[in-house]
Design a protein around this nucleic acid. Sequence first.
DNA 1: CCGCTCATGTAACTGGTTACATGATTTA
DNA 2: TAAATCATGTAACCAGTTACATGAGCGG
Lengths: 182, 182
Amino acid sequence: MSTARDLTELEGCVLGLFWERGPCTPYAIRKEFLASLSPYWSGSAGAIYPLIERLDRRRLIRAASGAQGPRRSKHYSLTPAGRQALRRWLGPPLTETTLGIPPDPLRTRMQFLGALPHPRKMSLLREAEAGLRMHVSRVEENCERSRRAGETYEWLIARGAARMLRARLEWIREVIEELGGS
Amino acid sequence: MSTARDLTELEGCVLGLFWERGPCTPYAIRKEFLASLSPYWSGSAGAIYPLIERLDRRRLIRAASGAQGPRRSKHYSLTPAGRQALRRWLGPPLTETTLGIPPDPLRTRMQFLGALPHPRKMSLLREAEAGLRMHVSRVEENCERSRRAGETYEWLIARGAARMLRARLEWIREVIEELGGS
DNA sequence: CCGCTCATGTAACTGGTTACATGATTTA
DNA sequence: TAAATCATGTAACCAGTTACATGAGCGG
């Protein structure tokens, strides 16, 4: 039963954050996204606040009854239904969208590389390599930091991101090698 | 000059396809997306047709003047402005969004794995491993096929996807190893 | 007390999804 | 010729973006 509309990535993620940190304010959630290293999570106010309201209306979170911190900020926390929705969102089962080839705007662009004159093509590739190298090192620092701090999950996540970035970097090098003399 | 609104990923990609294949019908473009191995590209009619119209209105493509194939299908082709827009979209420069940590719904979920009871957690991980393995082998076949056919770009793209999937697979194994005992 | 940033919101827009509709062509 | 599927669309909806607004609290 319960065809209660599936959660979006952002919704699932917000529920997850409420689970992770217990009662907290919308802004605390929002900051999490603002601080994210991935540009995918914008944390724009126009996304978060209406979303919180939605979750509230669906009784997946509720304004924490107990007295809260300093002043006038509404704290929300996960309801049992919310916890269940979170688990459902996590899976199993995992969907095709979760497991399949993830989108990658860089890869997409590479497909049409031939539309650029050779010099520009090469400078694009060099820029990509440099940028990726920078991102890799930044994420790997992060990785190291959370490992030292013993935050297992954070560490695993950062590691996943690092592996992905490194795969992209090695791939770009392969592309350069392949197209270098064309 | 020309603050002509940036192209979306889908728009850029469609221009790229017109570049790749020359004059063709909206449906031919659409089929390309429908055939994609990545679930990210849905190829829904409601996305493609209005988009084609948009590109037409912006003079980035135009209905091919010459006589076309069999009957009553409008062929479009890239205009010079369209070609330029494509190159601009490709870069350089590359944006943060293009180079930064790409979104990965699987990685996102892993962050909240702790919300699942241990057995369910493990079965989720096993499902992920199995699914990824399947995807990897499927994409690697593709890779091999295009290598044999000598389609350099297709091959590079497939290779990028394969590397990404393999990175995810290895990562999931690492997660399993790390969490296996608890 | 003045101004800055915090925290919460909202209105307008936009690109993409879902689901349906419709003629044209092919196939059984 | 009847049924299927090709090819093109469209209407309603929806989540997220951009840009603006606002009051509360705090630091000079």
